[in-house]
Amino acid sequence: MADTLRVYAGILHARWRIAMSYRTSFAFEITGQAIGQLTEVVVIALLFTRIRSMGGFDVTAVLLMYGFSAACFGLADTVVGQVEKLPQLIRSGELDAMLIRPLGLLPQLCLLDIQLRRLGRLLSGLLILGVAAHRAPIDWTWDRFLLVGLCTVTGAVIFSAIFVAACSISFWVVEGSELANAVTYGGTAFASYPLTIYDRILRRLMAYVLPGAFISYYPTVTLLGIRDPLGLPGWFGWLGPVVALLSCLVAGLIWRTAVRRYRGTGS
């Protein structure tokens, strides 16, 4: 573990130095990522010029949900987003090169190609979350602070698990990355809006199969102390850690199976 962290620090340092030697283009990339994220805020703002509530939630609540979704996705994307490259790595044989190093495959995948430009997305996500939380009528007791912090982390963990599980498909399907995109980016887009606007099948899928609802919807409901229109109890927002743990277990299992298949164990 300590070694992994050392390698992590080393690669971050090296990447940072590279980014700083191309300062202008790095700034450009970061801004680009941030603007991309903020476009969605424009969309929400424009929608709310014509509606007063979306699925029973006002603009503050929707922005809060969007903020959770954006911040968690940004964090997950920065830490594990590199698994997206899996199809390329398999095709070029670089994955084999990773297998002859004395580190786990997944840590290598996440660490070694870390993209600092993704910080743009993370920072804008955190900014949106911060502004939304600040504007919301919340009585800031310590447990609510804790809830925001906890949910940002567990939400990111859930997203990461979705990332890893979805990208594992590349071991089976050649064009797996786009399918994975449907799940990962689709998942973020889904988690950005109140669960109540979707029809029943989609809702169930999102709340229980891909646990996107635990990233933004339940935390927001709990945080604002609103009665859930779908009738689930208020403490549901605190279930994040449990769901995150479960997601990791499932994702880990899928990943293991995929890698075993790739290396040809027992096939």
């Binding site: 070694d3 050392r6 090169a97």
Partner: peptide, 22 residues
């Protein structure tokens, strides 16, 4: 196929491998 990091200076790759291999 390369064991090195495409966009990093050669020496950086070596230092990373030093850490990876302890």
């Amino acid at each position: 196929r390369t064991q090195l990091w495409w966009d990093l200076p050669l020496l950086d790759s070596f230092e990373l491998l030093r850490d990876i291999y302890r």
